Simulated assay, not measured.
Amino acid sequence: MEEIGGYFHLELNRICNFSHYGGILLNSGRCSFEYILTQLSVKKIFLPFYTCEVVLEPILRRGIKYEFYGIDSNLEIQGRLKLGDGDYVLYTNYFGIKDHYVKQLANVYKSCLIIDNSQALFAERWMDIPTFYSPRKFVGLPDGGVAYCKKREEIELDFDKSYDRCEHLLSRYDRLASDGYSIFRMNSAKLKDQKMAYMSNLTKALIGNIDFTTVKNIRNSNFLYLHDRLSVSNKFDIGDINSFSCPMVYPYWSDDHTLRDRLIKNKIYVPTYWPNVMQWCTEDQLEYYLAKDIIPLPIDQRYNNKDLENIISIIRLR
């Protein structure tokens, strides 16, 4: 018998315009990647040097062989990888701006391709290529991931529980981000080596509360605003701005090596994607400098033109 009465839960709206309800809803992006690996007969996987170290968790857990490959300054695979039987290629849709290139790769590697859309929540899945997403990179969620795979054998999984990973989300209303950063780090650490499970009821309810149409529109508008003012000084070639659905950040590559610290000092918090790359690579590899020098400027739905002008003014202080 269901419980009746007692204290209230959070009152959440039911907007439900999340575009990935048709995928397998799991407890994190990396577990979504693992789900795909369980559905495919993967003997070996090629993955980019320029990627987050957490992608290794499911690969190592499944005992799959792996090999790194290099990318060029356009964030595209150097040359063509030679695949044997049971070999697969993992490609990251970097910053959410490589949608068009993903389509090109699909024509080359076909069913041997896996797409990491963790930074491209609004990118469409292409040609039934196995693909996974991480919504919490775009909106305020404690966890969660989505997997798509044409082959879908039933796997017996528990449902995750998320209530103990929400403190940083709640504290953000009453405190500064800097005050709750240690809690954010602690809750993120809880996802490390996490057992694969279905998405929690809480995370699903939070997703249903978000107006993703508005999220997408504001992000695209903010991206264009920064691009209009910074593209001339940006060493990174964004390419055709009509070739992608919705970016996660504005990738800004500058010769000003004081810029990252200057932004953070002025309370504009920009992460490093990804510190592990500078350990995996040497200084004669492009990926070392991609990780070190590209600054992901925030464009998300919390900000308006006034906020973006603050970012621009600090960049131009040099």
Rank of each mutant, 00 (worst) to 15 (best):
I4M: 08
S19K: 11
S28P: 12
G29W: 05
P58S: 06
P58Q: 07
K65D: 15
K65P: 04
G70D: 03
L75E: 00
D87Y: 06
D87R: 09
V89N: 09
Y94G: 06
Y109L: 12
C112A: 04
L113Y: 03
I115T: 06
T131D: 03
P135G: 00
R136Y: 03
K150C: 08
K150E: 15
R152K: 15
D160V: 07
D160A: 12
S162Y: 00
S162D: 07
Y163W: 11
R165T: 10
E167C: 09
H168L: 10
L169M: 13
L169C: 11
L170M: 13
D174F: 08
R185V: 15
N187R: 03
S188M: 13
L191V: 01
L191D: 03
M196K: 02
M199C: 04
T203Y: 05
T213W: 07
F223C: 06
Y225N: 08
R229D: 11
R229M: 13
V232C: 09
S233W: 07
K235H: 14
D237I: 06
I241Y: 04
S245K: 14
P251S: 10
S254F: 04
Y269R: 11
N276D: 14
M278A: 12
D284C: 12
L286V: 13
L290Y: 13
K292S: 02
D293C: 02
R302D: 12
Y303W: 10
N310K: 10
I311W: 04
